[in-house]
């Protein structure tokens, strides 16, 4: 399989109704590109959480790029949002800065970033307050699990 690059932009609408649209599209694109199911599922989780964060915490949204290679799938997420003050804390399961109304909709459980890390074989988050956040995630493909 050749290297393929898929690029998506997530718009921050202030509404949750559209969250999941981009990650659903990513899932479809990867399936069509012939990526095995288990890898697609892991990438889908990472992209869903990224999409939620972009919609939830940034004013202008951000970009998700997914690169499919023979041995791995690489995900880049980038935004020029508010940045994360304490990355170490944000990576702790259960830590959340989300307001109550967000919790009531079933979001803001403090599991987004930990979920992304959990599903990645490599995960790096860099953030600068007032400038934005970047995520670089790698999922190694496991062909023996192909379905």
């Amino acid at each position: 399989m050749e290297r393929r690059v898929f690029a998506y932009s997530v718009v921050s609408t202030g509404s949750f109704d559209d969250v999941g649209v981009v990650s659903t599209e990513i899932k479809r694109d990867l399936e069509e590109a012939g990526v095995e199911r288990e890898t697609v599922r892991r990438v889908a989780v990472i992209c869903f959480e990224a999409e939620m964060n972009l919609a939830l915490y940034t004013e202008r949204g951000g970009n998700i790029e997914v690169v499919v290679e023979p041995e791995k799938v690489v995900i880049y997420v980038e935004d020029d949002g508010p940045g994360i003050e304490d990355v170490e804390k944000a990576m702790q399961p259960g830590y959340s800065t989300a307001p109550l109304w967000v919790h009531e909709l079933g979001f803001g459980a403090g599991m987004g970033l930990p979920n992304m890390k959990e599903n990645s074989d490599f995960f790096e988050l860099t953030s600068e307050v007032g400038k934005g956040t970047k995520i670089h995630s790698v999922v190694f493909r496991r062909r023996e699990n192909a379905a």
């Binding site: 999941g20 599922r41 889908a44 989780v45």
Partner: peptide
């Protein structure tokens, strides 16, 4: 008992 739109995406993404 979660009823909003995103349940569809979650169900779809997790198969």
């Amino acid at each position: 008992i979660q009823r909003h739109m995103n349940i569809v995406a979650v169900a779809k993404l997790r198969d």
